[in-house]
Every structure is written in structure tokens, then in C-alpha cells.
């Protein structure tokens, strides 16, 4: 009955009081997330926790809410219920969360009128980074660094987007379909970068409809939405 449901719900919320910080040694923790988009429930009762050097792979068919979950973790979307913690504080109250966050969306945020180097440099400046050259080198963009981005192929543009990961520091990497459109060499460059990042304690959450070669990763499958 509805009244019973309501009180049961309140009891559950009280139990998981969002103001109580997590006890484990986890750095990123999602607790009891639920998200409605428009008139659809994407997921509910979703929890996970990641410690240093750990990775989480989100998979599931297209439209199952992977991108929404990543954007939710980044703080671009508010969850319908539940909380995401970063270093023990809810992300929206954590002062340095945005400094620690490196978000690669499914769009590359590449300005066609700026050169490759200018593109990477802008986002690097915005996040207080100074490793533009290293980033360009790592993703083999050095030769085309002075080319306006409108001449690039989709794969090259994706690499320019990914170069942001290395151009500025960030402990948490959120990657939305990072390997789409990349050739084999670039994929290995990407996962090379991810390995190095995790080796120094970095966290990775990646979403992909297929599988990604993330070693020793937690896996979260979002089921298909029936309508």
C-alpha cells in the first residue's frame, strides 16, 4: 500500500543517511543512486565504491543510462536520489572535486577553428595543467599540432579530446566510450595512459557498450530498458 511504501522508503533513507561519510577506504563511492530521465527510470539502488588505483567499467546497451551515470558522477546531473562521495564528502560539497576530475564526454569539445595545440592548451589552462607537449606526444599529435582541427578525421579528433587527460592533472578519470573511432595504436596509447594513471593511484570510470581492456576492473552492467 502506498503509505506503507512511503514510510518504508523514509526508513531506508534514514538508514543510509547521506550525511554520514563512508567508512571504508574508498575514494569514490556512490550510494543508492536512482535516476529518472523525463518519464523513464534509468536505474535505481545503484551503489559502488572505488579505492585508489581501481577502475569501474560501465557496460550495457545503448540508451541504458551509461552516459547519464557518468554525467551524474561528474556532477552535471543531479541524481533523483542517492549521493556520490569523493574523499568522504558529497561531490557537490567537496571543494576540490572539480580540480580532481578529468571528464571525457562522448563529444570531443574540439573547436574546428583552433589548432590541435590550441585546443589542448585551452582545456589544460582551464584546469591548471602545463603538460600540453607530453599529451600531444603521447597521442601522436605532434605532427599535426599546428593544424586547424577542422581538417582532422574523427579518430584524430578523438585523440585531441583524449589528450586533455594528460595535459592537466586529475585523480578521477571519467571516460565515455573512450575507444570509439580509434585505431589500434591509439587504443593501446589510451590504455597505456590509463595504466600509468592507475599506477600512481588514479581512479577510472569508463563507459562502453562493448568490452574494454581494463585490467582488474569492477564491472557494472546496466540492463536494457523495456518500454
Amino acid at each position: 500500500m502506498p503509505t506503507a511504501m512511503l514510510s518504508e522508503h523514509h526508513a531506508r533513507v534514514a538508514q543510509n543517511n547521506p550525511m554520514v561519510p563512508p567508512v571504508s577506504n574508498s575514494i569514490l563511492e556512490a550510494r543508492d543512486l536512482a535516476l529518472w530521465r523525463g518519464e523513464r527510470l534509468l536505474f535505481q539502488k545503484l551503489s559502488f565504491s572505488l579505492g585508489a588505483s581501481e577502475a569501474l567499467l560501465l557496460s550495457g546497451p545503448n540508451g541504458s543510462g551509461k552516459t547519464s551515470l557518468l554525467r551524474l558522477i561528474a556532477g552535471l546531473i543531479r541524481p533523483t536520489s542517492g549521493v556520490v562521495f569523493w574523499c568522504g564528502a558529497p561531490t557537490n560539497k567537496h571543494e576540490r572535486f572539480h580540480n580532481d576530475l578529468n571528464y571525457i564526454g562522448h563529444l570531443d569539445a574540439v573547436k574546428p577553428l583552433l589548432t590541435v595545440a590550441e585546443n589542448v592548451e585551452f582545456w589544460s589552462t582551464l584546469r591548471g595543467g602545463d603538460a600540453v607537449q607530453e599529451a600531444l606526444n603521447h597521442f601522436c599529435l605532434r605532427e599535426i599540432a599546428n593544424l586547424p582541427a577542422r581538417f582532422l578525421s574523427a579518430g584524430q579528433r578523438r585523440r585531441v579530446g583524449l589528450a586533455r587527460l594528460l595535459a592537466a592533472p586529475g585523480k578521477l578519470w571519467l571516460l565515455d566510450e573512450p575507444a570509439v573511432g580509434l585505431d589500434e595504436d591509439s587504443v593501446s596509447a589510451l590504455f597505456d595512459a590509463i595504466r600509468k594513471h592507475r599506477a600512481v593511484g588514479g581512479l577510472v570510470v569508463a563507459a562502453s557498450h562493448g568490452d574494454l581492456p581494463l585490467e582488474n576492473a569492477q564491472k557494472l552492467v546496466l540492463p536494457e530498458i523495456h518500454s
Binding site: 552535471l76 571528464y103 564526454g105 569539445a109 573547436k111 582545456w123 582551464l126
Partner: peptide
């Protein structure tokens, strides 16, 4: 917004 840069501007520190 169309290019995806708006998200990054919002997430900028």
C-alpha cells in the same frame, strides 16, 4: 553545447 565544451566549462574549477 553542441561540441561538448559547455560540460567542460561547467566542470572547470
Amino acid at each position: 553545447a553542441d561540441e561538448g565544451g559547455l560540460d567542460l566549462l561547467i566542470l572547470a574549477p
